[in-house]
Every structure is written in C-alpha cells, then in structure tokens.
Design a binder for these strands. Structure first.
Length: 264
DNA sequence: TATCAGGACGCAA
DNA sequence: TTGCGTCCTGATA
C-alpha cells in the first residue's frame, strides 16, 4: 500500500504509513457516519442536526458512502476526501462561518456550494475529530486528554501532520504548517491552546450534552487512561449567542451540537 | 531542537 | 470569500 501511496503522494513516509495501516481504509472504506450517529444519537439525529427541509440527513449525498462502504477510485490511490462526517460535525461544517460575517446563505445555496465542491469540503478540526474518533489513531497518534472538555493531545504531531498532508494532497505538510492552521482556529473560537502543555489543544466550549455523550461510553472517541490532564485551563468560557439575521449560533464552537435556531 | 504565536501573502475551491 | 498553506520572525521550553 505504501508503494502505491507513494506513487500518488511523492515524499510519503513509508515508516509512518506502516504505523497507520488502516488510515486509508478508515477514511475511505468505512461508514463511520452511521456508526458514529448510532453511537452518539441512538434515538436518532436530533432535530437541530437535521436540515430544515424535514429532518432528512444533513450529510450531502456525495459525502455519504454507499451501503457497501466503498469509495470511488481504483484502490491504488489515496482517497482525497473520503471522510464521513459524524453527526454534528457536518452540521457545524456547513452552517459554520466566521462570526463577524453576515448571515449564512440559505440552505439551498449551501447545498449548491457543497455540490460545487464535490464533497471536498473538509476542515482540519474535522480531520482531528475523526482521528480522535478512530481507535486506530487514537490514542496512538492523537488522544483525548480530557474528552469531556474537548482537550486533546497530538501524541505524534509529525504523523498527524503527515496524515493531514496526505488528506489534503500536500506532501510537504508538517507540524509547523498544520500548527499554523490550528492557530487560526484560536481567532475563530474553534480551538484554544492549553497553556503549558505542548501539543495539547482544546475545542472551545464543548457543551454539556456533548460531554454526556462522550462520557456515556460510546465508541466515538478514546482517551488514555494513564494520562490525567495535567492542568487544564479554565474551561468556563461562556457560551455565546451570536445573532445573525437568519440564525442564532449559541456556541462559539460547538462541533457536535451546534444549535441553529432558524428564525425564518 | 522542537514547539508556539502570529503577521503577511498566496492560492484553490 | 473562505480556509488554509507557506514563509517568516521571534519567543520559549
């Protein structure tokens, strides 16, 4: 697989690849959407995560794999963007924006945008969350330090950055570059740095209901029982109600349960 | 040496 | 326009 991967990704580190044997299959051949959705929402997708057109899946069709879980491609190529978004993640992804921006476009325009990008909309924070949800990589490469608070650590920063580079078809990706992208999230209220702890970041303001879901023993994440949080920062960042002309977003960052209050 | 913060610029979607 | 990717300087562990 590594050789095949190297053909399409010059510079790929085989030693790294050998340590992450199921990354590609995990990112392409599985359907964690349904798995995660079942785990997180055994009673069905919450209404606020369903779209406004009647509760149908919020996931764009081209992001959902078929029942056989196969991804397009010959199998010799790395999937470019085969991530299947757990519930809530895609909700945030498609509803999120910079909060200084005007209101988001209507849902049908978002749908057009999604289609226009042919399923290639993906963000670093989603990628990290995906890794955190996958026992193949968590806690091996990335792990929760305090899952209920959204605090995680890049155990192997190089491997994670390479994975990100593979995903984005950027063979030159390294932690320095990925870290810059992570730091952009500070301004946007998506991440914050955990002071005094290297490679430790925190998703901002993880809501209580998500904490409950994480704590309920689902397979949606992992943690390292041997490592207690050293000194997590104050996590009491207040929830924010960010009014827009069409929606209210009740959290600065709420990847698993962004609440969109449709005032239309 | 590695990590981290953040400015500046560029680019693909 | 967005979300980075890249390069950079400087600080810190």
């Amino acid at each position: 697989m590594c050789q095949a991967a190297q053909q399409s990704r010059p510079g790929l580190d085989c030693s790294t690849l050998s340590n992450m044997p199921s990354l590609l299959s995990s990112l392409s051949a599985q359907n964690p959407t349904l798995r995660a959705q079942t785990a997180l929402f055994p009673n069905g997708l919450p209404s606020h995560l369903a779209n406004s057109t009647g509760g149908a899946s919020i996931f764009p069709e081209n992001l959902l794999l078929g029942a056989n879980g196969t991804a397009s491609g010959s199998g010799n190529q790395l999937p470019h963007n085969p991530i299947q978004y757990p519930p809530g993640l895609s909700s945030y992804m498609f509803e999120s924006r910079r909060y200084s921006e005007p209101a988001p476009p209507p849902a049908h325009l978002l749908a057009q945008r999604r289609k226009s990008r042919d399923g290639q909309v993906t963000y670093l924070w989603e990628f990290l969350l995906r890794l955190l949800q996958d026992k193949e990589y968590c806690p091996k490469f990335i792990k929760w330090i305090d899952q209920s608070k959204g605090i995680f650590k890049l155990v192997d920063s190089k491997a994670v950055s390479r994975l990100w580079g593979m995903h984005k078809n950027k063979p030159g990706m390294n932690y320095e570059t990925m870290g810059r992208a992570l730091r952009y999230y500070y301004q946007r209220g998506i991440l914050q740095k955990v002071d005094g702890q290297r490679l430790v970041y925190q998703f901002v303001d993880v809501p209580k209901d998500v904490q409950d879901l994480f704590d309920s023993g689902t397979d949606s994440g992992c943690s390292d029982a041997f490592e207690e949080p050293d000194s997590p920062p104050s996590t009491g960042s207040p929830s924010q109600v960010l009014p827009t002309s069409g929606h209210q977003i009740t959290k600065a960052f709420d990847p698993l349960s962004v609440k969109i209050i449709d005032e239309a």
